[in-house]
Each structure stands twice: as C-alpha cells, then as structure tokens.
C-alpha cells in the first residue's frame, strides 16, 4: 500500500477527517491535527510499516505531503 493511501485511510477511519479534505498540500494544522494527534498518527504509521520516525523529524512536518515523504524515505531505508 502506498504511504499516502495508508495515511488517508488512518485519517478517515481513526481520526474521522473527511476524505475530500485529505490532499498532499493540506497542512496538518488545516486537517485539525494538533501536536499530540500528529505524534499519534506517526506511531500508527510506524506500527503499520515497521519503521521508526525520529521525534526531531516529526517536528519538522508541515503538510501531509511532508509526512508522506518522511514515511517513504524510512520505508526505502528499511527495504534497502
């Protein structure tokens, strides 16, 4: 599953964010995710893909695209 699809499904099912708000350029803030929610989302992604996203990296995420990119990078490292 692509990182974007996984994040979209989590945001819709667990965080109950409407699917049409979920675009790569949307900021996490626009989606109504506060800092605790962002950390919770990252833990879910770590569990889903078996990766680790360091806290420092998490703090730099602004848009949903940033999150997808960070997850993709870690997944490539995990595969390689």
């Amino acid at each position: 599953m692509s990182s974007f699809d996984a994040i979209r499904d989590l945001l819709v099912e667990k965080f109950q964010i409407s699917a049409d708000e979920i675009r790569l350029e949307a900021t996490l803030e626009d989606l109504g995710l506060d800092s605790l929610s962002v950390v919770e989302l990252l833990f879910d992604l770590e569990d889903l893909f078996g990766i680790e996203l360091p806290q420092e990296e998490a703090q730099g995420l602004v848009t949903l695209g940033d999150a997808v990119e960070a997850v993709d990078r870690r997944r490539r490292q995990a595969d390689g």
């Binding site: 965080f15 109950q16 109504g32 506060d34 929610s37 919770e40």
Partner: peptide, 8 residues
C-alpha cells in the same frame, strides 16, 4: 463517539 478527541 465522533470528532477529533476520540483518539484520546
């Protein structure tokens, strides 16, 4: 239970 607080 709905809304963003449900994750808490």
């Amino acid at each position: 239970v709905t809304g963003p607080r449900r994750i808490l």
